[in-house]
Design a protein around this nucleic acid. Sequence first.
DNA 1: TTTTTAATTAATTAATTGTTTAATTAATAA
DNA 2: TTATTAATTAAACAATTAATTAATTAAAAA
Lengths: 225, 225
Amino acid sequence: MKQVKSRTGNLGRPAGSDNEKVREALLQAARENFTSREFKAVSLREIAASAGVNGAMVNYYFGSKQGLYMAMVDGMFDSLEKSLPEMSESSAITVEDFSRSYCQFLGENPWWPNFMVREVLFNEGDNQDAMIRKFSSSFAPRLMQSIQQGISCGHYRQDLNPGLTLLSLMGMTIFPFLARPMAEQVLKVNLDSNMTAALSEHNIKLFLSGVVSDGEDATGAGEQS
Amino acid sequence: MKQVKSRTGNLGRPAGSDNEKVREALLQAARENFTSREFKAVSLREIAASAGVNGAMVNYYFGSKQGLYMAMVDGMFDSLEKSLPEMSESSAITVEDFSRSYCQFLGENPWWPNFMVREVLFNEGDNQDAMIRKFSSSFAPRLMQSIQQGISCGHYRQDLNPGLTLLSLMGMTIFPFLARPMAEQVLKVNLDSNMTAALSEHNIKLFLSGVVSDGEDATGAGEQS
DNA sequence: TTTTTAATTAATTAATTGTTTAATTAATAA
DNA sequence: TTATTAATTAAACAATTAATTAATTAAAAA
């Protein structure tokens, strides 16, 4: 009765091995590593070690490093769509809904902005096209629709460029999370859940009415030298 | 007279070799490669080939791959400060100046947003701290100062959070360039010089007065379902 | 039970990386 | 001129990488 569990030599299929458990451990390790460091900077050995399995498991379950990465991407988009149910419907999204939902999502999923920007910006060719399509087919057109309705019904200014307006709104929503290190270290804006809620309300008001006080002149002529 | 130019074996110091020229060629190659691909994904051999010199030249002139990268970073910040002279002065920057100058700079230097975000976001530890300090010591505090003046003199709303307001402004300024592929492919917003100028004016107006028409209610109650 | 299949590990493979070295040639100083 | 220094190349080096393979063991099927 020597092989208590074949202690040192862990060869062969382990007793009670769980296919799905290993798979999920690898995906989890991939998320941890790929969201904070660049693709090439993360080695399979690191991922495997961080998942507590042998390096060859990545190729066994996902075919390749790239395969694991793509599986991770799919999972991330799934979790986005699950976290933003109101954005999965087919009607127009109001500015308020977008600001609140997206701020909350970004606050709760700090890995997302880094990841999204890296994918859309840097992985030119590889995943970029698919990313852009996936990204833009979710909420962008429906938010655009909402903005265009606002203009055509006269609620918004008639001189607004819908595309630029959408970009401005997305920018003020996403950028604070994107520049989190700068926001926290330089501006002392700590993006906890309270500040996240404050940010969405701040942005809604800024987007709709601007920063200028009621009754003040907004031409900027009254500004400080 | 066989050694016409020692055609194939290009050993030794070449006639009329220009120290500064090689240095600049390497920096140029570094800019081209490092701004579009991640640090680890760019090899010294690629850079050298793209500069038309031997791979060992990187170590000869810059000590290491990292040394070349840092030299490139320094040059980029120099070009930013030269391109934005009005931001190098010591007085407060108005929202208008910031929006116009920065939009123009981003339009003329499309590599900057990618590079900046990559540095501030992803190179954790290595250059991040230095980047944040350099970045924030240039215009951030003076723009902040301008916003705080606007609030304290009553021109801006009293309920404004200055930090969030600065982040919103930076976001609506930078994001369109950051999401350029998405802006162009999905929203059909082509960021040429005309659109860049339009963007800065659009943002100034939006920042100051919002999107809602004069006389309209800005609570959003009047929006489409 | 016996056979086959699934899961896991250690070892190997082939390619690529950043860096160093030695050889080589031009420019410069003595 | 001669000796020394600066610039360049090809080659070698050592480390690391993703991927494959063969061996091994448990689970499932026959």
